[in-house]
Measured scan of single mutants.
Amino acid sequence: NCLEGLIFVITGVLESIERDEAKSLIERYGGKVTGNVSKKTNYLVMGRDSGQSKSDKAAALGTKIIDEDGLLNLI
């Protein structure tokens, strides 16, 4: 459970895995996936064609922004 207690938001199109697979992977390792960035969000996983508003909010809140490889490296 290397992601225990961590909260993730996924945005954009992921290249190597589907969004549902990424969500399942995060949950399997103890993390939680939500739909919107908040002060409780630990990581924003940004894929291709992701919206600017979520990354702006993450930056404003100090949320770590990672890509798909960054997510896989956490596991």
Rank of each mutant, 00 (worst) to 15 (best):
Cys2Ala: 04
Leu3Cys: 03
Gly5Asp: 05
Gly5Met: 02
Gly5Leu: 03
Leu6Val: 05
Leu6Ile: 08
Leu6His: 04
Ile7Gln: 15
Ile7Gly: 07
Phe8Ile: 02
Phe8Tyr: 00
Val9Trp: 00
Val13Ala: 13
Leu14Val: 03
Leu14His: 05
Leu14Pro: 06
Ser16Tyr: 07
Ile17Met: 15
Ile17Tyr: 15
Ile17Arg: 10
Glu18Phe: 00
Arg19Pro: 11
Arg19Gln: 11
Arg19Glu: 09
Asp20Val: 08
Asp20Arg: 10
Glu21Asp: 11
Glu21Met: 06
Ala22Tyr: 09
Lys23Pro: 02
Leu25Arg: 04
Ile26Leu: 04
Glu27Trp: 03
Tyr29His: 14
Tyr29Pro: 02
Gly31Asn: 00
Val33Leu: 08
Asn36Glu: 14
Asn36Asp: 11
Val37Thr: 02
Lys39Ala: 14
Lys40Arg: 11
Lys40Asp: 15
Thr41Gln: 00
Asn42Ile: 01
Asn42Ser: 08
Tyr43Cys: 13
Leu44Tyr: 04
Leu44Pro: 01
Val45Gly: 02
Val45Thr: 01
Val45Asn: 00
Met46Asp: 04
Met46Leu: 13
Arg48Asp: 06
Ser50Phe: 14
Ser50Gln: 07
Gly51Gln: 15
Gln52Ile: 15
Gln52Asp: 10
Ser55Trp: 13
Ser55Pro: 13
Lys57Tyr: 11
Ala58Lys: 06
Ala59Glu: 11
Ala59Pro: 05
Ala59Arg: 14
Ala60Gly: 10
Leu61Tyr: 15
Leu61Lys: 09
Leu61Gly: 07
Leu61Trp: 12
Leu61Glu: 08
Gly62Arg: 05
Thr63Leu: 09
Thr63Trp: 00
Thr63Gly: 04
Thr63Phe: 05
Lys64Leu: 05
Lys64Phe: 01
Ile65Trp: 03
Ile66Val: 08
Asp67Gln: 06
Asp67Lys: 05
Asp67Cys: 04
Glu68Trp: 14
Glu68Met: 15
Glu68Gln: 11
Asp69Leu: 10
Asp69Arg: 13
Leu71Asp: 02
Leu71Ile: 03
Leu72Thr: 04
Asn73Glu: 13
Asn73Tyr: 06
Leu74Asp: 02
Leu74Val: 03
Ile75Ala: 01
